[in-house]
Nucleic acid binder design. Structure first.
Length: 213
DNA sequence: AGCCAGGCCTGCC
DNA sequence: GGCAGGCATGGC
C-alpha cells in the first residue's frame, strides 16, 4: 500500500533532498523552530542566526536569551522556542560532549528516549532529528501524514505511535526512502491536503485511486 | 481579512 | 490518558 503511494509521489516530486540544512545540528535547530510554524519563517530565523554567527551549541548558550529571542522572532512562539533551543544545547554540551552526532553511539530507542526527555522535544521533533540529522531509520509522522491517511482512506490513526507502527510494518524502503517519503507527503499536502476539507483537489484523489485500486 | 503553518506543554477532568 | 487552551509570526 504505502510503497505504491510512495512510488506515485516519487514519480511526481522525485528527490526532494530533505532535510534542507547544512549540518546535522542545523537540522535540530530547524526541527525545533518549525513546530507549528511555516518553514519560510524558520528560514528567516535561521538566517538571522547565521548572520550573527550563532550557529553552534556553544554560541547559542553564550547568547543572551533576549537576544536569541529577537533573532528567532520570525519563527513565532519565540519565548518558548528560545528557551527550548538553550535546553537542547545544554543537553548536547553536558551529555554529548558538544556534538549531536554522539547520539549515534546509542541504540535508536535510547537515543529517542533521551531526546523525548527534553522539554520542547516531542515525538515528531525527536524523530525528525533521528532520521534527518542522525540517519536512524525511523518514519516521521506529522499532522499532514495522519490527515492524508485519514482523508483518503489509507487508514485512520488516532495517535502518533499507531500511525508510525503502521508505516514501519507496511512501508519497505532504505534510509533514503524514509527521508524522501516524509518529504513527499509534506509536499503534496501543502498543495492538496490543507486543513480545510474542501481543499481536496482531484489530483490527489487520482493519486489515491491508483494506490487503493 | 482570515486562515493556516513540517508541535509541544500545561492544567484541567 | 485524553483534550482544550496558550503560544506568535508572516505567507497567501
Amino acid at each position: 500500500m504505502l510503497n505504491r503511494l510512495y512510488n506515485i509521489l516519487f514519480a511526481n516530486y522525485g528527490d526532494l533532498n530533505w532535510w534542507p540544512a547544512e549540518t546535522p545540528f542545523e537540522v535540530c535547530i530547524g526541527a525545533i523552530l518549525t513546530q507549528n510554524t511555516n518553514w519560510k519563517n524558520v528560514e528567516k530565523a535561521i538566517n538571522n542566526m547565521k548572520i550573527k554567527g550563532v550557529l553552534s551549541p556553544k554560541e547559542i548558550l553564550n547568547t543572551d536569551l533576549n537576544v536569541l529571542k529577537d533573532l528567532i522572532k520570525p519563527a513565532g512562539f519565540y519565548n518558548q522556542k528560545a528557551e527550548r533551543l538553550q535546553i537542547f544545547c545544554n543537553f548536547i554540551m553536558n551529555q554529548l560532549n558538544g556534538d549531536i552526532l554522539n547520539l549515534k553511539k546509542y541504540s535508536i530507542h535510547e537515543a529517542r528516549d533521551k531526546l523525548l526527555s527534553l522539554k520542547g522535544v516531542g515525538k515528531e521533533t525527536a524523530d525528525s532529528i533521528l532520521l534527518y540529522a542522525l540517519d536512524f531509520k525511523i518514519f516521521v509522522v506529522d499532522a499532514y501524514t495522519m490527515r492524508l491517511f485519514r482523508r483518503y482512506g489509507i487508514g485512520y490513526f488516532d495517535n502518533y505511535d499507531k500511525c508510525q507502527d503502521f508505516v514501519h510494518k507496511d512501508f519497505h524502503g532504505e534510509l533514503y526512502d524514509y527521508k524522501n517519503f516524509h518529504a513527499c507527503i509534506v509536499e503534496i499536502c501543502k498543495t492538496y491536503c490543507k486543513k480545510k476539507p474542501l481543499c481536496n483537489i482531484c489530483l490527489l484523489k487520482k493519486y489515491c485511486k491508483k494506490v487503493l485500486e
